[in-house]
Every structure is written in C-alpha cells, then in structure tokens.
C-alpha cells in the first residue's frame, strides 16, 4: 500500500479502500440473511468477488494478491465444493441425500431452517472465490504479456 507507483491516483485508492470494506460486509449480510430476505449464496458471493475486483483495479495486482493469493484462493474454492458435498452427505444420517437433518427452529429468526444457512455460506464462499480466481487469471495473463 505504501507503493504509490502502481495502481490509480490517491483519491481512487482512498475511496475504494472504504467501499471495498463496505462491499465485503454487505455481501456477508446478504449471505447470512439468504433464508429470510431476497439474496442468498449466489448474489452475496458475487458481491464479495466484486469487492476484491475493486481492490485489484484500484491498487494493482500485487496489493490484492498480498491479501489473498492465487493458491489460497483456489484451495478455498476446492474446500467450498467439498463442504457442500459433505453437507449433502450429512443427510444420509436421516435417510436421504441432502435431507435437512438439523433442527428447524422457528421461522423469521436468523438461526432457523436447519442446513440452509450453512449451505448458503458454503455456496457464497465457493462462488465468490471462484469468480475472483477467474478474474485474477485474466489479470495475470495481461501482466505477463506486457513483460515479454
């Protein structure tokens, strides 16, 4: 962040630093309230990916990679896919694949609906990190082309 050469001007950097944090919090809110309000894992995951994309566009590739490297991102994506499968397999303890085995709770509360909030969190992790990996691969390709 101290390196002022890479990335855009000071105004863009200062404002995007604020907006990226707000976007991250908003994405988490959308994911966690997916079973109560419009939204859910897909939309929240894409919003989280967009906040990281904003960091890349404002600060350049290296500053964003120091927060979340490509290897860590792809590992997190694999973990998301595996966790979704494991939650599906948990349903076998009740007798069927993807059965809602946890306690339902009362509707209109944050902790209700059994496995659906867990599934939302896992899907949000998978989609967000996956789209971030796609964008990062495109950016790294552009950079390597310029160096040659």
């Amino acid at each position: 962040m101290e390196n002022n050469k890479s990335g855009m001007t000071l105004f863009v950097k200062t404002s995007s630093r604020l907006v990226a944090v707000l976007g991250l919090i908003f994405g988490m809110h959308i994911i966690l309230h997916g079973h109560l309000a419009p939204g859910g894992g897909f939309a929240g995951g894409v919003i989280i990916a967009l906040s990281f994309v904003l960091l890349i566009l404002a600060f350049g590739k290296d500053a964003a990679l120091s927060k979340l490297s490509l290897k860590l991102a792809s590992n997190l994506e694999n973990v998301g896919a595996l966790l979704f499968l494991i939650i599906g397999l948990l349903g076998f303890s009740g007798g069927a694949f993807f059965l809602n085995v946890l306690v339902k709770g009362s509707p209109f509360r944050l902790f209700s609906a059994g496995t659906i909030p867990l599934n939302n969190v896992v899907i949000g992790l998978k989609v967000g990190v996956g789209l971030f990996v796609i964008f990062l691969t495109l950016v790294i390709l552009e950079k390597s082309k310029k160096e040659q």
Binding site: G34, H35, L36, A37, P38, G40, N100, K104, G105, S106, P107, F108, S112, A113, G114, I116, N120
Partner: peptide, 8 residues
C-alpha cells in the same frame, strides 16, 4: 424447511 424465502 423452516426457510421463509421459498426460492432459497
């Protein structure tokens, strides 16, 4: 399911 949002 206990979820209010039926699409979810």
């Amino acid at each position: 399911t206990g979820a209010v949002n039926i699409v979810s």
